[in-house]
């Protein structure tokens, strides 16, 4: 087990023994993220929910073969992404997850010398109290994430929501580390722009 990764041996053993509480814990921890990542790839929330459901069945069927070479979450998301990609191919959807040629949405913000044409407004409303108490802010973040292109959405969810390390995210999504960092930056820039509308 790599240094810094929590020991999941007991949880995996409980899952393999069919303990409902263990499954419920893992399911509730990851299911929303599974649906969000799959929805970006398959382009449909309903199909994404189906993919997540199929993934859980596959996870429980194969948990005894889980060897801990990745984190449990990393293994679960690998199953999901592979299934979602197969489904997207079957449905004739081409969904590249890499950064491609899109920019970070800021190119119009600068003048010809690379200086701000219009500097960002101050976010006066962003106080720790509002962030913690304001479900409206978090709902806005969720909507912004759900509107991201598939690759940006997957990287942001796997890194920020699931806390997976960079190497695992690259392996799951078949990305280079540089590409993954570009996607993460663009995702955050897009979410920042969405928040700026709210502030």
């Amino acid at each position: 087990m790599p240094e810094g990764r929590p020991d999941e041996t007991d949880l995996v053993r409980r899952l393999a023994s069919g303990e409902r509480a263990a499954f419920e814990q893992v399911y509730r921890q990851h299911n929303a993220s599974l649906i969000r990542v799959a929805a970006g790839i398959v382009g449909s929330r309903a199909v994404a929910e189906e993919m997540a459901q199929d993934t859980w069945v596959a996870v429980l069927r194969n948990i005894s073969g889980f060897e801990g070479r990745s984190s449990l979450a990393g293994w679960i998301f690998t199953i999901l992404v592979n299934r979602a990609r197969s489904r997207a191919r079957r449905d004739g959807r081409m969904v590249p997850l890499d950064a491609g040629t899109s920019d970070d949405g800021l190119s119009g913000a600068f003048d010809g010398h690379g200086h701000w044409a219009t500097p960002p407004d101050l976010w006066e409303e962003v106080t720790p109290e509002r962030i913690l108490a304001g479900r409206d802010v978090i709902s806005h973040v969720a909507a912004a994430i759900d509107g991201l292109p598939a690759g940006q959405r997957a990287v942001l969810i796997l890194r920020a929501q699931e806390g997976l390390d960079a190497a695992e995210v690259c392996a799951i999504l078949d990305l280079t580390e540089g590409n993954m960092r570009v996607l993460l930056h663009r995702a955050r820039t897009a979410v920042r722009a969405a928040l700026a509308q709210l502030m």
Binding site: N31, W123, V126, I138, V141, R188, L195
Partner: peptide, 21 residues
């Protein structure tokens, strides 16, 4: 201001999102 807003954004994206279902 931009860097500070990116820090806030990172923190917010790491906050648990509302349940989907």
């Amino acid at each position: 201001r931009f860097v500070s807003q990116m820090r806030v954004t990172r923190m917010l994206t790491e906050t648990a999102l509302p349940p989907l279902l």
